[in-house]
Protein backbone atom coordinates (compact mmCIF):
# COMPACT_ATOMS: atom_id res chain seq x y z
CA UNK A 1 0.00 0.00 0.00
CA UNK A 2 0.99 3.59 -0.26
CA UNK A 3 1.94 4.51 3.22
CA UNK A 4 4.93 2.19 2.98
CA UNK A 5 6.04 3.39 -0.45
CA UNK A 6 6.60 7.10 -0.59
CA UNK A 7 4.96 8.15 -3.82
CA UNK A 8 7.11 11.14 -4.48
CA UNK A 9 7.89 10.89 -8.14
CA UNK A 10 5.46 13.63 -9.23
CA UNK A 11 7.17 16.41 -7.30
CA UNK A 12 9.31 18.43 -9.65
CA UNK A 13 12.81 19.71 -9.10
CA UNK A 14 14.64 16.53 -8.22
CA UNK A 15 17.18 16.82 -11.01
CA UNK A 16 17.88 20.47 -10.33
CA UNK A 17 18.15 20.00 -6.57
CA UNK A 18 20.30 16.91 -6.93
CA UNK A 19 22.46 18.67 -9.50
CA UNK A 20 23.13 21.62 -7.20
CA UNK A 21 23.79 19.25 -4.29
CA UNK A 22 26.25 17.11 -6.17
CA UNK A 23 27.99 20.13 -7.67
CA UNK A 24 28.46 21.87 -4.32
CA UNK A 25 29.45 18.66 -2.59
CA UNK A 26 32.00 17.85 -5.25
CA UNK A 27 33.65 21.24 -5.47
CA UNK A 28 33.57 22.19 -1.80
CA UNK A 29 34.12 18.84 -0.10
CA UNK A 30 35.07 15.93 -2.33
CA UNK A 31 37.59 17.63 -4.64
CA UNK A 32 39.69 18.98 -1.73
CA UNK A 33 39.68 15.60 0.03
CA UNK A 34 40.65 13.84 -3.18
CA UNK A 35 43.44 16.35 -3.66
CA UNK A 36 44.83 15.61 -0.19
CA UNK A 37 44.80 11.87 -0.84
CA UNK A 38 46.37 12.39 -4.28
CA UNK A 39 49.14 14.40 -2.72
CA UNK A 40 49.68 11.76 -0.05
CA UNK A 41 50.13 9.17 -2.77
CA UNK A 42 53.09 11.13 -4.13
CA UNK A 43 54.94 9.90 -1.08
CA UNK A 44 56.55 6.50 -1.17
CA UNK A 45 55.30 4.16 1.52
CA UNK A 46 58.66 4.34 3.22
CA UNK A 47 58.71 8.15 3.30
CA UNK A 48 55.11 8.28 4.42
CA UNK A 49 55.83 5.91 7.29
CA UNK A 50 58.92 7.85 8.26
CA UNK A 51 56.98 11.12 8.33
CA UNK A 52 53.97 9.88 10.26
CA UNK A 53 56.03 7.96 12.83
CA UNK A 54 58.60 10.66 13.53
CA UNK A 55 59.08 11.12 17.26
CA UNK A 56 57.61 14.59 17.23
CA UNK A 57 54.55 13.36 15.31
CA UNK A 58 54.08 10.43 17.67
CA UNK A 59 54.21 12.75 20.66
CA UNK A 60 51.61 14.97 18.97
CA UNK A 61 49.22 12.06 18.28
CA UNK A 62 49.67 10.85 21.80
CA UNK A 63 48.64 14.21 23.18
CA UNK A 64 45.82 14.67 20.68
CA UNK A 65 44.26 11.26 21.22
CA UNK A 66 45.03 11.03 24.92
CA UNK A 67 43.69 14.47 25.78
CA UNK A 68 40.67 13.90 23.52
CA UNK A 69 39.93 10.64 25.27
CA UNK A 70 40.13 12.17 28.74
CA UNK A 71 38.06 15.17 27.64
CA UNK A 72 35.42 12.96 26.01
CA UNK A 73 35.19 10.85 29.16
CA UNK A 74 34.77 13.99 31.24
CA UNK A 75 32.09 15.12 28.78
CA UNK A 76 30.28 11.81 28.92
CA UNK A 77 30.13 12.04 32.70
CA UNK A 78 29.40 15.73 33.16
CA UNK A 79 27.23 15.81 30.03
CA UNK A 80 25.05 13.03 31.41
CA UNK A 81 24.92 14.79 34.76
CA UNK A 82 23.91 18.10 33.20
CA UNK A 83 21.34 16.49 30.92
CA UNK A 84 19.84 14.57 33.83
CA UNK A 85 19.65 17.61 36.08
CA UNK A 86 18.23 19.81 33.30
CA UNK A 87 15.55 17.32 32.31
CA UNK A 88 14.54 15.87 35.65
CA UNK A 89 14.89 18.64 38.20
CA UNK A 90 13.45 22.09 38.63
CA UNK A 91 15.77 24.73 40.10
CA UNK A 92 16.38 28.45 39.77
CA UNK A 93 18.34 29.26 36.62
CA UNK A 94 17.55 25.99 34.90
CA UNK A 95 16.47 27.65 31.65
CA UNK A 96 19.53 29.88 31.69
CA UNK A 97 21.93 26.96 32.14
CA UNK A 98 20.04 25.07 29.47
CA UNK A 99 20.59 27.88 26.97
CA UNK A 100 24.21 28.28 28.10
CA UNK A 101 25.03 24.64 27.26
CA UNK A 102 25.22 25.68 23.61
CA UNK A 103 27.65 28.46 24.41
CA UNK A 104 30.82 26.49 23.57
CA UNK A 105 29.23 25.60 20.25
CA UNK A 106 28.38 29.19 19.41
CA UNK A 107 31.58 30.74 20.76
CA UNK A 108 34.41 30.94 18.25
CA UNK A 109 37.16 28.57 19.36
CA UNK A 110 39.76 31.30 19.36
CA UNK A 111 37.80 33.19 22.00
CA UNK A 112 37.33 30.01 24.01
CA UNK A 113 41.06 29.41 23.98
CA UNK A 114 41.83 33.00 24.86
CA UNK A 115 39.51 33.15 27.85
CA UNK A 116 40.35 29.67 29.17
CA UNK A 117 44.08 30.36 28.92
CA UNK A 118 43.58 33.57 30.81
CA UNK A 119 41.43 31.96 33.50
CA UNK A 120 43.91 29.18 34.18
CA UNK A 121 47.06 31.27 33.87
CA UNK A 122 48.94 31.91 37.13
CA UNK A 123 47.27 35.28 37.59
CA UNK A 124 43.87 34.24 36.22
CA UNK A 125 40.60 33.82 38.10
CA UNK A 126 41.13 30.14 38.68
CA UNK A 127 44.87 29.85 38.12
CA UNK A 128 45.70 32.02 41.12
CA UNK A 129 44.06 29.42 43.38
CA UNK A 130 45.05 26.32 41.47
CA UNK A 131 48.69 27.12 40.67
CA UNK A 132 49.80 27.15 44.32
CA UNK A 133 48.29 23.67 44.61
CA UNK A 134 50.46 22.54 41.70
CA UNK A 135 47.54 22.35 39.28
CA UNK A 136 48.66 24.22 36.20
CA UNK A 137 45.89 24.64 33.67
CA UNK A 138 47.66 26.83 31.14
CA UNK A 139 50.50 25.79 28.83
CA UNK A 140 50.27 22.14 29.97
CA UNK A 141 48.57 18.96 28.69
CA UNK A 142 45.93 19.64 31.36
CA UNK A 143 45.15 22.88 29.52
CA UNK A 144 44.57 20.89 26.34
CA UNK A 145 42.14 18.65 28.21
CA UNK A 146 40.33 21.67 29.67
CA UNK A 147 39.91 23.29 26.24
CA UNK A 148 38.72 20.04 24.67
CA UNK A 149 36.22 19.47 27.49
CA UNK A 150 34.86 22.94 26.87
CA UNK A 151 34.34 22.49 23.12
CA UNK A 152 32.94 18.96 23.41
CA UNK A 153 30.40 19.59 26.17
CA UNK A 154 27.38 20.58 24.01
CA UNK A 155 27.70 17.40 21.96
CA UNK A 156 27.45 15.17 25.02
CA UNK A 157 24.56 17.09 26.62
CA UNK A 158 22.50 17.67 23.48
CA UNK A 159 22.74 14.06 22.35
CA UNK A 160 21.38 12.74 25.63
CA UNK A 161 18.87 15.44 26.49
CA UNK A 162 16.14 14.67 23.92
CA UNK A 163 16.35 10.97 24.73
CA UNK A 164 15.96 11.67 28.44
CA UNK A 165 12.98 13.88 27.70
CA UNK A 166 11.15 11.23 25.72
CA UNK A 167 12.14 8.26 27.82
CA UNK A 168 9.24 6.63 29.55
CA UNK A 169 9.30 6.92 33.32
CA UNK A 170 6.92 3.97 33.38
CA UNK A 171 9.83 1.53 33.43
CA UNK A 172 11.23 3.30 36.48
CA UNK A 173 7.88 3.05 38.19
CA UNK A 174 7.68 -0.57 37.18
CA UNK A 175 11.10 -1.18 38.73
CA UNK A 176 10.02 0.63 41.88
CA UNK A 177 6.80 -1.37 42.03
CA UNK A 178 8.88 -4.53 41.87
CA UNK A 179 10.72 -3.40 44.96
CA UNK A 180 13.89 -1.95 43.42
CA UNK A 181 15.41 0.96 45.30
CA UNK A 182 16.28 4.15 43.47
CA UNK A 183 19.98 3.25 43.18
CA UNK A 184 19.16 -0.20 41.93
CA UNK A 185 16.71 1.26 39.41
CA UNK A 186 19.36 3.66 38.19
CA UNK A 187 22.05 1.04 37.70
CA UNK A 188 19.94 -1.73 36.27
CA UNK A 189 17.20 0.13 34.41
CA UNK A 190 18.06 3.74 33.62
CA UNK A 191 21.76 3.53 32.85
CA UNK A 192 21.56 0.53 30.47
CA UNK A 193 18.79 2.30 28.55
CA UNK A 194 20.85 5.45 28.19
CA UNK A 195 24.18 3.74 27.58
CA UNK A 196 24.07 3.72 23.75
CA UNK A 197 23.19 7.41 23.69
CA UNK A 198 25.86 8.34 26.23
CA UNK A 199 28.33 6.41 24.12
CA UNK A 200 27.20 8.30 21.01
CA UNK A 201 27.69 11.59 22.83
CA UNK A 202 31.12 10.42 23.96
CA UNK A 203 32.08 9.53 20.38
CA UNK A 204 30.84 12.87 19.04
CA UNK A 205 32.81 14.79 21.67
CA UNK A 206 35.88 12.65 20.95
CA UNK A 207 35.63 13.24 17.19
CA UNK A 208 35.25 16.95 17.76
CA UNK A 209 38.25 16.99 20.10
CA UNK A 210 40.61 15.25 17.71
CA UNK A 211 40.24 17.94 15.08
CA UNK A 212 40.18 20.89 17.47
CA UNK A 213 42.75 23.59 16.88
CA UNK A 214 41.59 27.11 17.67
CA UNK A 215 41.10 26.86 21.41
CA UNK A 216 44.25 24.80 22.02
CA UNK A 217 46.60 27.15 20.23
CA UNK A 218 46.01 29.66 22.99
CA UNK A 219 46.07 27.47 26.05
CA UNK A 220 48.64 24.77 25.32
CA UNK A 221 51.75 26.80 24.56
CA UNK A 222 52.44 24.48 21.59
CA UNK A 223 55.78 23.14 22.81
CA UNK A 224 57.07 20.30 20.61
CA UNK A 225 57.02 16.92 22.37
CA UNK A 226 55.17 18.42 25.33
CA UNK A 227 52.04 20.36 24.47
CA UNK A 228 51.95 20.24 20.69
CA UNK A 229 48.82 18.68 19.19
CA UNK A 230 48.72 17.03 15.76
CA UNK A 231 46.80 19.82 13.98
CA UNK A 232 49.37 22.32 15.25
CA UNK A 233 52.16 20.17 13.87
CA UNK A 234 50.47 20.34 10.46
CA UNK A 235 50.47 24.13 10.63
CA UNK A 236 54.13 24.12 11.69
CA UNK A 237 55.08 21.92 8.75
CA UNK A 238 53.16 24.19 6.42
CA UNK A 239 54.93 27.24 7.75
CA UNK A 240 58.21 25.44 7.07
CA UNK A 241 56.95 24.82 3.50
CA UNK A 242 57.20 21.10 4.25
CA UNK A 243 53.99 20.30 2.34
CA UNK A 244 54.53 16.56 2.25
CA UNK A 245 55.19 16.47 5.98
CA UNK A 246 51.92 18.32 6.55
CA UNK A 247 50.08 16.06 4.12
CA UNK A 248 51.31 12.88 5.83
CA UNK A 249 50.08 13.93 9.27
CA UNK A 250 46.85 15.32 7.82
CA UNK A 251 46.22 11.98 6.13
CA UNK A 252 46.56 10.20 9.47
CA UNK A 253 44.09 12.62 11.06
CA UNK A 254 41.69 12.31 8.13
CA UNK A 255 41.87 8.54 8.36
CA UNK A 256 40.92 8.57 12.03
CA UNK A 257 38.15 11.12 11.38
CA UNK A 258 36.58 8.87 8.75
CA UNK A 259 36.78 5.82 10.99
CA UNK A 260 35.17 7.78 13.79
CA UNK A 261 32.45 9.06 11.46
CA UNK A 262 31.62 5.51 10.41
CA UNK A 263 31.65 4.41 14.05
CA UNK A 264 29.34 7.24 15.06
CA UNK A 265 26.92 6.34 12.27
CA UNK A 266 26.83 2.77 13.54
CA UNK A 267 26.39 3.96 17.11
CA UNK A 268 23.56 6.29 16.20
CA UNK A 269 21.82 3.49 14.32
CA UNK A 270 22.20 1.27 17.35
CA UNK A 271 21.00 3.94 19.75
CA UNK A 272 17.96 4.80 17.62
CA UNK A 273 16.99 1.13 17.37
CA UNK A 274 17.30 1.02 21.13
CA UNK A 275 14.75 3.77 21.54
CA UNK A 276 12.28 2.95 18.81
Amino acid sequence: MHSSKQPTNVLPGFNLAMGVTIFCLSTVVLLPIACLLLKAMELSWHDFWRLVTADRALAAYKLTFGASLVAALANAFFGALLAWVLVRYEFPGRRFIDALVDFPFALPTAVAGLTLAHMFADQGWLGRYLSPLGIKGAYTPLGVIIALTFVGLPFAVRTLQPILETIDTDVEEAAASLGAGRMRTFWSVILPTLAPTILTGFALAFARAIGEYGSIVFISGNMPFKTEIAPFLIVTRLEEYDYLGAVAIATVLLFFSLILLALINLLEGWASRFHS
Binding site: P32, C35, G214
Partner: peptide, 24 residues
Protein backbone atom coordinates in the same frame (compact mmCIF):
# COMPACT_ATOMS: atom_id res chain seq x y z
CA UNK B 1 25.65 7.70 1.85
CA UNK B 2 24.94 11.17 0.48
CA UNK B 3 23.99 12.37 3.97
CA UNK B 4 27.25 10.94 5.32
CA UNK B 5 29.19 12.81 2.63
CA UNK B 6 27.43 16.04 3.57
CA UNK B 7 28.40 15.39 7.21
CA UNK B 8 32.08 14.87 6.35
CA UNK B 9 33.24 18.43 7.06
CA UNK B 10 31.93 18.10 10.65
CA UNK B 11 34.45 15.41 11.40
CA UNK B 12 37.47 16.73 9.54
CA UNK B 13 39.90 18.90 11.48
CA UNK B 14 39.65 22.52 10.32
CA UNK B 15 43.42 22.58 9.89
CA UNK B 16 43.24 19.59 7.54
CA UNK B 17 40.49 21.27 5.52
CA UNK B 18 42.57 24.43 5.24
CA UNK B 19 45.52 22.36 4.08
CA UNK B 20 43.37 20.75 1.38
CA UNK B 21 42.66 24.12 -0.19
CA UNK B 22 46.35 25.03 -0.10
CA UNK B 23 47.09 21.79 -1.92
CA UNK B 24 44.43 22.67 -4.49
Amino acid sequence: FLITLIDLPFSISPVVSGLMFILL
